[in-house]
Design a protein around this nucleic acid. Sequence first.
DNA 1: ATGGCCATCGCGGATGGA
Length: 262
Amino acid sequence: MKFATWNVNSLTVRLPQVLDWLSANPVDVLALQELKLTDDKFPHGAFAQIGYTAQCFGQKTYNGVALLTRLDAAVPVADVVKNIPGFDDDMSRVISGTIASAHGQIRVIGGYFPNGQEPGSDKFEYKMNWLKGLRVWVRDELSRHPNLVIMGDYNITFDDADVWDPVGLEGAIHCTDEERYHLRALVTLGLHDALRLFPQPPKSYSWWDYRDFGFKRNKGLRIDHILVSSSLKCHALACVIDKLPRKNERPSDHAPVVLTIS
DNA sequence: ATGGCCATCGCGGATGGA
């Protein structure tokens, strides 16, 4: 069974690439971020043609998230929830649903965490509040759903190993102590960084700046993550970053992250 | 380097991303 997350930076622009990737990588669940389109524009038909159905939570111009699941799944996605219950937000950043698996039900949360722009800014304060709201809710979700996956664009690095230039970017957005505190606090609820459960190539990143040949020079950050609860960690078989789509023409700046469980 | 690139909105150039 496979779970994947991908910030596509406009589904309108990236739809052909997502269709190609999904056809070549028929994962069970694909969480998408930064759709940048409203629900009435979501290309349900194109996904149906390759055997997928979508739960979407879009927004004009910015944000927007979706969960794609296989049409031939024995049980369709259930109990879909949009955004963080208990946290008032006018942006479309979170979508969750319950799927069936050999290990019983799994709660899947797809999220597009706030960017934060710059430490000290209003957007940074919003990011901190959002992270607190998410944690309060996820604590509750974990008590109801021992099998839980939370994946998406976290816009936070765990540590220096996730940063191409940890000295130059010390204290920069995605790398601040405050952001990392919140990420660790989330993990401390009983979650595990799936990628680090397995050996990875050095300097493994999930995002590269479009500017200055960022991808070619591997000037990147690991900010897209898949966290799994302890009961799922036992069944994890592999976790990889798929850099192939980043080599496409007109790529997203992010690469997909893929988790395999038994 | 107060940068570079990309997407959106909309038709120029600002805003947001990361």
